[in-house]
Design a protein around this nucleic acid. Structure first.
Length: 260
DNA sequence: ATGGCGGCTCGCAGCCGA
């Protein structure tokens, strides 16, 4: 069985103790992290290695930053999108374990529909689509996980009327996500849960978590054989509680047994 | 209708996040 976790930590240095506790609690095989907010030279390799994990990272000072932690060392590690999009922000890292490719993404936020940052988000998503299309054309089995900064549909939004055509919920963003899904990816969480009101992010402000005013924007996508083998998916809501939580909760999916 | 919190910085105010 393969257990994978995606989590936007919102600063790995602030969240290190929580991360180490999460590694113990779930003993995941692969962990996708976003918003490290940490340059490579300050990444906490030692405590993570002591916890039993290798780390492939793409760091950046202050903003962004992604990593894939794994019990077995990742092979064929690549960062960014190559020729498909030239991004100065640290938002994408991938690698392989055996025949499975693992892609960790931190999609741009977009700030406001129609803004320059929104255009950047849409361009970024186009490049991401082209990259995944190329990888799919090679027949690779993949897990693509991370902070997509898109709520797939209105079930993933606490107040769909208030968010209608707003950032993270606009039709062009949702269509861009759908084009990616149409390459042959499925949302592993939705295989097991159909209800609304199940979120992975809650605003720090205005008691967002306490009132369950959130969004589901953190996704674990899988190609068909891995989706078929996905036996469980959940959001670790408890991780959003207590002192100094990230504003995102981890999402966990279990795949397997794979080759039985 | 607004801002609210939290993390960051050549910091003490302003940015970005979602």
């Amino acid at each position: 069985m393969l257990r994978v976790v995606t989590w936007n930590v919102n600063s790995i240095s602030v969240r290190l103790e929580r991360l180490l506790a999460l590694l113990k609690r779930w003993s995941p095989d692969v962990v996708f992290l976003q918003e490290l907010k940490c340059p490579d030279e300050k990444f906490p390799f030692s405590p993570i290695r002591e916890a039993g994990y290798h780390a492939a990272i793409l760091g950046q000072k202050t903003y962004n930053g992604v990593a894939i932690l794994s019990k077995k060392p990742l092979q064929e590690i690549h960062t960014g999108m190559g020729n498909f999009y030239s991004d100065s922000a640290a938002r994408l890292i991938r690698g392989k374990l055996g025949e499975i490719t693992f892609v960790c993404c931190y999609v741009p936020n977009g700030q406001e529909v129609g803004s320059e940052k929104y255009q950047y988000k849409m361009n970024w998503l186009q490049g991401f689509y082209e990259l995944l299309k190329e990888m799919r054309s090679q027949g690779q089995d993949m897990i693509v996980a991370g902070d997509f900064n898109i709520a797939p549909d209105d079930r993933d939004v606490h107040d769909p009327a208030a968010w209608k055509e707003k950032i993270l919920c606009s039709t062009p963003e949702r269509e861009a996500l759908q084009r990616i899904l149409d390459l042959g990816f499925s949302d592993t969480f939705r295989k097991h849960h159909q209800d609304n009101g199940l979120f992975s992010w809650w605003d720090y402000r205005a008691l967002g978590f306490q009132k369950n005013q959130g969004l589901r924007i953190d996704l674990i996508l899988a190609t068909p054989p891995l989706l078929k083998a996905c036996s469980k998916s959940l959001i670790d809501r408890d991780e959003r509680k207590g002192e100094k939580p990230s504003d995102h909760a981890p999402v966990i999916s279990e795949i397997g047994p794979l080759f039985s």
